[in-house]
């Protein structure tokens, strides 16, 4: 359930995982957040391994922000949206950069959501918001547990709304999820978070 208590100025990044059925909610989120939403957003979405082009463009069309596939060791910029490239795992490094890797598949996936979530949880600790959307396998469940264990906020798309609910359901089984929300509520959460972060920014 949506709770205003989870809106907190401490958050420094948002990470979103999804697979089958997540394109629509992701697009909805990206088209609804304010253009100047201040936190970096990391997207790890399952995708075809050999199709390098087209996905980032498809996501960018409706997005208020440009979506980019980062290069290895690229510095993380405030308010940027990063998509894990095809056939690479995407990790967040300490020291504010992104690294890519071609390690073996995890949960039959490269990029693997667990890898992105786990590394982000390590880098951002309790200052991370993790969101897991519709999907047909359990990738991301362990990563959500890592986020929870390190004090971050965990949100899953409600299984009722999810086109395929294996992914959110697996996360709900793996760890305590702070909020189970519809796409619309996820958007509302991010907009409220944006407002609070901007108030904080103005007061400094």
């Amino acid at each position: 359930m949506f709770s205003y208590r989870n809106i907190n100025v401490k958050y420094k990044a948002v990470v979103i995982g999804g697979s089958a059925g997540s394109f629509q909610p992701v697009t909805k989120i990206l088209s609804s957040i304010p253009k100047d939403f201040p936190l970096p957003i990391f997207l790890c979405l399952h995708r075809l391994k050999h199709v390098r082009n087209g996905f980032v463009e498809a996501l960018s069309i409706k997005s208020t922000k440009e979506v980019q596939e980062p290069f290895d060791k690229e510095s993380i910029k405030r308010g940027s949206v990063y998509l894990a490239p095809a056939n690479y795992h995407m990790s967040i490094e300490l020291g504010n950069s992104i690294s890519l890797s071609t390690e073996g598949m995890v949960n039959n996936s490269r990029p693997s959501i667990d890898i992105t979530l786990d590394s982000a949880a390590y880098a951002y600790r309790d200052k991370l918001v993790g969101i897991l959307l519709s999907g047909a396998n359990k990738d991301g469940a362990l990563g959500m547990k890592k986020i929870k264990d390190r004090g971050g906020l965990t949100i899953v798309q409600s299984p009722e709304e999810s086109t395929i609910n294996t992914m959110p359901t697996s996360a709900l089984e793996a760890t305590e999820i702070d909020m189970t929300l519809t796409t619309e509520e996820i958007v509302k959460y991010l907009i409220e978070l944006d407002k609070l972060l901007k108030i904080k920014h103005e007061n400094i």
């Binding site: 060791k73 990790s91 490094e93 300490l94 690294s99 890797s101 390690e103 890898i115 590394s119 390590y122």
Partner: peptide
Amino acid sequence: YAMSSFKRR
């Protein structure tokens, strides 16, 4: 070595 992948290894 890049820390995140080294740690996983």
